[in-house]
Simulated assay, not measured.
Amino acid sequence: MHRTLRETGFGWAFVLLAGWVLWPPRAVYWSALAEIVGAPLTLVLVGALAVGLGFAVGVLRGVAIRPFVAGALLAYGSGMLAIEVVVRPESPVHLLLYGALLGCLVGGAVLGSHIG
């Protein structure tokens, strides 16, 4: 039980921090790269970085998948709530972008934990 709570908390903290670092609200530093290589390629790069981060965590930490995913989903929910309250975006596109990041991070962690 204690390990489950620890893994859930780790999943929450990891996904919340990784999402904020990879795509910070109001300060999307990827826009400069998108002007050079285009938005689609930039999104692919950010997704690949997210998969890589998740993979590294899966290999290095050997996460327990179910509690990690539970924490990741909690991170998504709390992060989206924080963005709604603090940033007050005009469109719901952030739900899709962060949802895609969540999928990449979790997918990478699942792959990494099975390989590592």
Rank of each mutant, 00 (worst) to 15 (best):
9 G>I: 04
56 A>S: 13
78 S>P: 01
4 T>N: 07
52 G>R: 08
26 R>I: 12
24 P>Q: 13
101 L>K: 00
92 P>W: 11
48 A>V: 15
62 G>D: 02
24 P>E: 11
59 V>W: 13
93 V>I: 12
83 I>K: 00
42 T>M: 07
59 V>K: 14
69 V>R: 03
110 V>H: 07
85 V>Q: 01
21 V>F: 05
99 G>D: 15
1 M>T: 10
61 R>F: 04
73 L>F: 13
66 R>Q: 02
83 I>Q: 12
7 E>M: 06
101 L>V: 03
18 A>P: 03
87 V>N: 03
19 G>F: 02
84 E>S: 15
13 A>D: 11
4 T>G: 00
16 L>Y: 14
6 R>H: 02
75 A>S: 12
104 C>W: 11
105 L>V: 11
45 L>C: 08
34 A>M: 13
80 M>R: 13
4 T>F: 12
65 I>K: 13
19 G>T: 05
78 S>V: 10
106 V>M: 07
17 L>T: 14
28 V>N: 15
94 H>G: 01
112 G>Y: 02
57 V>G: 06
19 G>H: 11
31 S>G: 07
103 G>H: 09
18 A>R: 02
12 W>F: 15
14 F>H: 14
61 R>G: 00
70 A>E: 04
31 S>Q: 15
33 L>A: 15
46 V>W: 04
64 A>K: 08
45 L>M: 10
93 V>A: 12
90 E>Q: 06
49 L>H: 03
19 G>C: 09
38 G>S: 07
90 E>W: 05
111 L>P: 10
66 R>L: 15
61 R>V: 14
25 P>Y: 06
36 I>Q: 13
100 A>S: 05
110 V>S: 03
98 Y>R: 11
27 A>Q: 13
67 P>R: 03
20 W>H: 07
74 L>D: 03
31 S>Y: 14
23 W>E: 02
23 W>G: 01
46 V>Y: 04
